[in-house]
């Protein structure tokens, strides 16, 4: 077993265990902390896949900004395990069974797919900022500008909704 496969297995088990912790823990603050662990593991996968720019953006935007925002909101609301709303048990089982059924169907459908393999040892400069920036500002200028409009409207929307 090569070193890449060992790293893959370790990172994947951390990610899946943390994701299960998100949906199973009773305390919402624990869920957010598990989510941060899961995102860090996914960032490790990005490094393994030669996506250096996405790695750093994922760490800064998701782990640094979005999850801290979630944590702030949770702390502001002072939620804890005692007032956590609980679903009825049969609804929980129904949710778990339907999610598991989807998992089975997708795995069964894609098990035999023939796709080119990933050469985990080979490094490429596809994910570096210079390469991505050239593509972004030549082929994808319009979506880039549109996303700035989206951010502006989201900012205005958040301020308007959050105001008393």
């Amino acid at each position: 077993m090569s070193i890449e496969q060992i790293i893959f297995i370790v990172l994947s088990s951390i990610a899946i265990a943390a994701a299960l912790g998100v949906i199973l823990s009773k305390n919402p603050v624990n869920s957010v902390l598990c989510m941060i662990i899961c995102f860090v593991a996914i960032a490790g996968h990005y490094i393994m896949l030669n996506a250096q720019f996405l790695f750093i953006v994922h760490l800064i935007v998701y782990t640094g900004a979005i999850m801290v925002l979630f944590l702030f909101v949770l702390m502001m609301m002072n939620l804890n395990a005692e007032i956590e709303p609980q679903k009825r048990n049969w609804l929980k089982y129904a949710g778990a069974i339907s999610g598991g059924a989807l998992l089975l169907v997708l795995v069964g459908a894609l098990r035999e797919a023939s796709l080119p393999a990933i050469n985990a040892g080979a490094s490429s400069d596809i994910g570096l900022i210079s390469n991505l920036g050239k593509t972004l500002f030549t082929s994808y200028v319009v979506p880039f500008e549109l996303s700035s409009v989206l951010f502006l409207s989201a900012m205005v929307g958040a301020v308007v909704i959050g105001r008393k």
């Binding site: 994701a19 949906i23 929980k92 999610g99 795995v107």
Partner: peptide, 18 residues
């Protein structure tokens, strides 16, 4: 697929909006 299905299970199983 595993992460996606865990997300779907979470949406179906929890009642906390956050």
């Amino acid at each position: 697929i595993a992460l996606f299905c865990i997300g779907i299970m979470g949406v179906l199983m929890r009642r906390n909006a956050i």
